[in-house]
Design a protein around this nucleic acid. Structure first.
Lengths: 202, 202, 202, 202
DNA sequence: AATGAATGAGCCTTCATTCAT
DNA sequence: GATGAATGAAGGCTCATTCAT
């Protein structure tokens, strides 16, 4: 989706235009949601024509898809990069909490969008997202498996790890992003990291 | 909101009609979201006329508001009733997790709606919701204050309690409701209750 | 398609409105073709709102479909009614030419539309049209079969009858309707009827 | 129309490009009609750039015009060439039917386009077409006039000749091209030629 | 209370065409 | 000659809401 003709690289000007559109769209989506944002909103924010939007992205959902796929991949890659620098289970679990917190603070708008559930992806994008998610979950599990095996991390129902480790920080970030309270998650980062480790340590 | 003219009780027939509309609307909202549901969808599902919908609820948002205000109050009342039967902080914290889990399993559609974030309430409804939330949070804090004071529950940033206690079970329920995994939350109820208690005990 | 709820008859007012829309649409279609006619054109000609159009017909094509299905059925029924009053093959063949000519002169706009080929029917309408056509062709063949069997009408490849009998008058009408020449087909009706009979008589 | 600058012959490369575009456009037009074909459809089918299309043809209609003018002239020239080899009225009338049949079978896509009525030509092209048509009709009438004068061909209203002679084969070809029936017109060529002659012979 | 036809602002999208490179 | 990004008018359609019956 990043290019209509993958065999020929896009010119820099094209990439710049696309990037500026994505930036503008992100601001709109974060403010009013995807459903609450009109093509005209994006077009005005990006200072381009409607035709240009469709030329580059094919549809309104096409913009959201590219934005979110890029965003999720960015989040995932950052998480995996962080994990690879960890020596053991404890560092890893705490890194997940910390990285999620840091990334959300650096990418507030994107985080806001990823939390909202009003996105309706096309079949193609849904497949791509599933693939990305599968790969990511696979990598995560592969990373933690040794720590579980050696007993450093508790054996739990597989579906329980993510909620126990990430549930609190995600909930905190969600509330912070939606303005429920003013305190940035940095304040509770280590507290939640410790709690996460306590919840899953062997 | 349950009646337009509190001085004259509504006839049972009217209440039945309203209840059947709310039921139909809930099913639609749970399936397609509030934004994704049209008045016609509800009308068809409730097997009534459009005029009737407007006669009873005034607007589409009026339906959502009545539904969600009732739902939140039901959830809140159940939670407080449960808490009042608890003797100490540990029982209380675990009851919060357990009750949230049980309620969500008994009210899947409503839980799905409450998780979604695409609802835009009118000024009047927003005020009513804020009031309800304020009262509820006040009652919750009043209940837990003694346990914090006596040291049974840790002293933490106020914004941290809810995420630490409810974050994991909420995240688990959300994933279960959206079909990410098939295992109902009952399976992890006590596990998550224990983790919640560990996270906030003194 | 004539009604959204076939189990309940439409009120006269509704039928009148639909009829006036169909009338207006026919005028537009005859003038500019279906593709060349916009919903706004019809709306202005019918003096109603866009919403009303969609309320009654569902889509622009829905209007065209109802119009053409009604039109074709009208043509077919008239043809069969005429045939049933014929005593032999010769009268029948000549009646086909004459009736086609008369109907086209009485329904110029509809005839113009039926000649144009720029209509894209929905699956449902296409199925309905196929059914109508099948029934009509079946009735026509059933009518002529005895005359072929008794030798009054020639045995020919089945696909040849319609072009031989109707081809000339259709071509003449088409040219007249599109303004290629000013002489109405009444002038050549009997000439073409005789030619048709000559072409297929036994 | 074949060249923008008649004083300087186009290079073969240019002609090849134009020819390949016309070929691609014809395929598109035959499949989806002129209105149903977009510039992008042609561009993709011709494997060239949009700019190139406009460089060579000026507009979408420019492509259709060149294609159809060439096509009609090809049809007309073939017809006249055939007629000139006929010795009398009977041979001539039958040649018209036969040639139309043969040409349509050899140029199915073009025939399909010429049958469709959704083409809206520009003033310049319309004038050119009228001129072509006038010349062609003039030549045809000039050819047949002697046979009418000598009594070999009946005296009929001028507008009746074409429908009587060509109507059946045209209708047959139209139905065959649109898939209504599978039998190619070659099967009925002589049958229809005989019928045509019967219809107009003196 | 009930009904559903009527309304029209606003949305997403298409597509022929232009033009700078 | 070739390229394709940019343009924006115009089209079909949705949908919450009103109101006469």
């Amino acid at each position: 989706m990043a290019s209509r003709n993958p065999s020929r690289p896009e010119r820099p000007a094209t990439l710049e235009r696309k990037a500026s559109v994505l930036e503008a769209a992100l601001a709109c989506f974060a403010k009013n949601g995807v459903d609450g944002t009109t093509i005209q909103d994006i077009q005005r924010a990006a200072n381009c024509s409607i035709g240009s939007l469709y030329h580059h992205f094919g549809s309104k959902d096409g913009i959201a898809e590219e934005l979110f796929i890029d965003g999720i991949q960015n989040l995932n890659h950052g998480m995996l990069a962080k994990l690879r620098r960890c020596k053991n289970g404890e560092e890893s679990v705490k890194a997940v909490v910390g990285q999620y917190c840091d990334w959300s603070m650096r990418n507030k708008d994107l985080a806001r969008c990823l939390h909202s559930r009003d996105i309706e992806f096309s079949g193609e994008a849904r497949a791509r997202l599933k693939e990305i998610h599968r790969d990511y979950i696979g990598a995560i599990y592969a990373w933690f498996a040794p720590f579980v095996e050696c007993g450093e991390v508790r054996v739990l129902p597989v579906d329980a790890y993510v909620p126990l480790i990430s549930g609190p920080i995600q909930e905190y970030v969600r509330r912070w992003l939606s303005g429920h309270h003013p305190n940035p998650p940095a304040k509770v980062k280590t507290l939640f990291a410790d709690a996460a480790w306590n919840a899953v340590k062997g």
